[in-house]
């Protein structure tokens, strides 16, 4: 397809969509009877409900069903796929990696975001300083991965370095290091990329919540002779606790589902695969439908409690 044809297709799709919506609204706008109002409600709600049923509900149920079936999806195998996940050594490695990601990324991003938010609060260049950290949020994970792959670029110690991390090592007199290849630390260096992306999110939310702490609480604590660090520990931290929890859980959810970094940097090689990437490999590379489905269900099961907790905290936060 040529560029022009693509734009024409796009305009057709948007036009078609608005046409349908306009027809629905015009046809139902004169209805005033009780039955008419019901039809009107249906016109407003049904497009969304139908799309969700077809595109979310049915596929989710089907995937759960497929997770109990074999690679080709034509035979019932009970819990075999789940057993494979928890016994196959390569997949256990995937689970361990995922656990490390989900623990380290939220904690590190939140800690860095919090420290930075406090340090630059009311500083002269606060807005600018915030934008520096926040900018990676607008970048795709693919872009972030390429940026960091270049930082980690490896050359032999004797050669001129083009990756700044190894140039730094060399300047300090160390040998250069294969950041993305050497196990087990390579997973950590991938995690750094995710921390780099997520810290800005943590910083923004926490900074807003620090600014919302009422002055009189701080005033009272100061009159009682609390020192700065005591204030931070005993006033700031407890006051922003709900936001801290929301930030931590939100980043865990994002981390659990992210597969872009692993795919772009190492392709899951050198023992760096995580659950979300392994799902992609089994489903769309190895065509092991059953195992892929089981991995997807596992992500679902792991994400569910965090999301529920997250939403409850968020509602509390909103209610305040």
């Amino acid at each position: 397809m040529s560029t022009g044809e693509k734009f024409v297709q796009m305009l057709i799709a948007i036009g078609l969509f608005f046409g349908v919506v306009a027809v629905i609204l015009l046809l139902t706008q004169r209805l005033r009877s009780r039955r008419g109002e019901l039809i009107q409600s249906a016109a407003f709600v049904l497009p969304a409900v139908l799309l969700i049923c077809v595109g979310l509900l049915y596929p989710a149920l089907d995937t759960i069903y497929q997770s109990f079936r074999n690679a080709a999806g034509n035979e019932f195998v009970g819990l075999d796929n789940y057993q494979t996940i928890f016994t196959d050594s390569a997949l256990i490695r995937v689970l361990v990696n995922t656990a490390v990601w989900v623990v380290v990324v939220p904690l590190a991003s939140t800690a860095i975001g919090l420290i930075y938010a406090v340090l630059i609060d009311r500083a002269k260049f606060e807005k600018f300083a915030k934008a520096l950290i926040f900018l990676p949020m607008a970048i795709s994970l693919v872009g972030a991965s390429i940026i960091w792959k270049f930082v980690y670029d490896y050359r032999q110690t004797s050669d001129a370095q083009i990756g700044i991390a190894n140039a730094f090592l060399k300047a300090l007199g160390f040998d250069t290091y294969r950041f993305l290849l050497n196990e087990p630390w390579n997973t950590m260096f991938l995690i750094v990329i995710m921390i780099w992306v997520q810290a800005g999110f943590a910083m923004t939310i926490l900074s807003a919540s620090i600014k919302a702490i009422p002055d009189d609480i701080v005033e009272a604590a100061r009159l009682d002779g609390a020192s700065g660090l005591q204030l931070f520990r005993q006033i700031t931290i407890p006051s922003i606790r709900p936001s801290l929890i929301v930030v931590l859980t939100t980043i865990s959810i994002t981390t659990l589902k992210a597969f872009d970094i692993v795919r772009t940097t190492t392709g899951g090689n050198f023992d760096t695969s995580v659950l979300a990437y392994q799902f992609y490999v089994e489903s769309f590379r190895s065509f092991n439908q059953g195992l892929g489905a089981a991995l997807a269900v596992l992500i679902f099961v792991l994400v569910m409690p965090i999301v529920i907790y997250n939403v409850r905290q968020m509602r509390k936060l909103e209610a305040r």
């Binding site: 406090v118 340090l119 702490i213 700065g228 931070f232 006033i235």
Partner: peptide, 24 residues
């Protein structure tokens, strides 16, 4: 004047030792 100081600014001050600026 005292009331103008918020928790964060106090914490900020406490942490505005030279090494804290270095961290930022």
């Amino acid at each position: 004047v005292v009331a103008k100081e918020t928790a964060s600014s106090t914490a900020h001050k406490a942490l505005t030792s030279p090494w804290a600026s270095i961290v930022a």
